[in-house]
Design a protein around this nucleic acid. Structure first.
Lengths: 199, 199
DNA sequence: TGTACATCAGTGAACGCGCGTTCACTGATGTAC
DNA sequence: TGTACATCAGTGAACGCGCGTTCACTGATGTAC
């Protein structure tokens, strides 16, 4: 805690960061201990000085990916709001951007991993479930004050589902059409402030 | 083709059916050749008389799961429409039912596998992408005639996303709340016929 | 109808490979005096 | 300040296991005559 972080702590952080990127890129099932250690600049033998098991690493990776995704999201939203976008528009355009379509490894881990969640360990599932709740809360804060909790849930489902379907269709015209459709649909329904240059 | 299906054809069908259930239950990565053959009542050695590779089986399984999910969906919708539900209500209540929350192995393969799609072989991805387009078309047929393609895409994303988030939250009150929220949100917006007993 | 043979679906042992995990060891960092 | 020792992070070989794939063989089905 005191002074500069020790060598081990720095290694630990590199491992978790590498794992957080790897799960979003390859899925839980596609991530191996040796790959992650290599990406962190280490050899696989030292892994068990950092985690009791591969599964514990996945849990830490999901937790880190959640924070990472949320903070990148907040930054992207702030930039758009500084340019005059409403909070909802900033959220929708940040979440459903073409950049996120192409770069899942730095995006929202829920979109990258949702359908694998039911098959994970209780430890991983618990962290993932609280991330889902966190995303619903974040969405709710961008909605009109009179919108109920159920609207925030539905909009969250819309965001996550649209990004996944877009990725399933591919990083091409069809995938981009899916993103555009979801952006338009959500904003048409809930963006009371209209577009910045609407007329 | 003529007469009763041969022994081999019957075995092939059993293998594909077992695989179609397995991928929805365990994900692509969780499905092994030996497991599927066992579930089909065979031993693993005979597999390569039916498929050139595990990946070819996954493609056939995705295709079959798509047809299976769509036909179960059509049946569930028909029952609800016979009871007086509008097409959209029948679709939304069938897709976002608590039965589907608990039984992913007989449900929509897109909801069960969406986030794994970008990591599959071109063969599998192509079949999956056409299933996504098919679901969008099916949704569009339940929407008011003046609703654009983008509305059908957004509603599809909402359906798929809500089921996945519900499953990520768990087969419990939180998961069911996610389904209910999405059902209400979609019907509030697009169901012009109102509830059957609305007043 | 019955026998001999060919075909063919399925069996189960085996192979090679990759993965999670373990462990004896190395080399560097830090501490005692 | 310098030397001797202890601690500790990381290395790399090894183990066991499961998986996709191959293959020689078996037993059943179908055909020829």
């Amino acid at each position: 805690m005191a002074g500069p972080a020790s060598r081990k702590v720095l290694s630990h952080e590199r491992i978790v960061e590498a794992a957080a990127r790897a799960i979003r890129r390859e899925g839980y099932a596609g991530v191996g201990v040796a790959d992650v250690m290599k990406e962190a600049g280490l050899t696989h033998g030292g892994f068990y000085a950092h985690f009791p098991s591969r599964d514990a690493m996945l849990a830490a990776a999901m937790d880190h990916a959640g924070r990472d995704g949320a903070s990148r999201m907040a930054q992207a939203m702030a930039r758009r709001q500084a340019e005059g976008a409403s909070p909802l528009r900033a959220m929708v355009e940040s979440y459903l951007s073409e950049k996120m379509l192409a770069n899942c490894e730095i995006g929202c881990p829920i979109a990258a991993l949702a359908s694998e969640m039911p098959r994970q360990s209780p430890q991983v599932r618990e962290i993932a479930a609280s991330r889902v709740q966190g995303l619903v809360r974040a969405v709710r804060q961008t909605l009109p004050a009179d919108a109920g909790e159920h609207v925030a849930m539905a909009v969250t489902a819309n965001l996550v589902g649209a990004m996944q379907l877009a990725r399933a269709l591919g990083d091409n015209a069809e995938g981009r059409a899916m993103l555009a459709a979801a952006r338009k649909s959500i904003l048409d329904q809930y963006d009371t402030e209209g577009t910045p240059a609407s007329h």
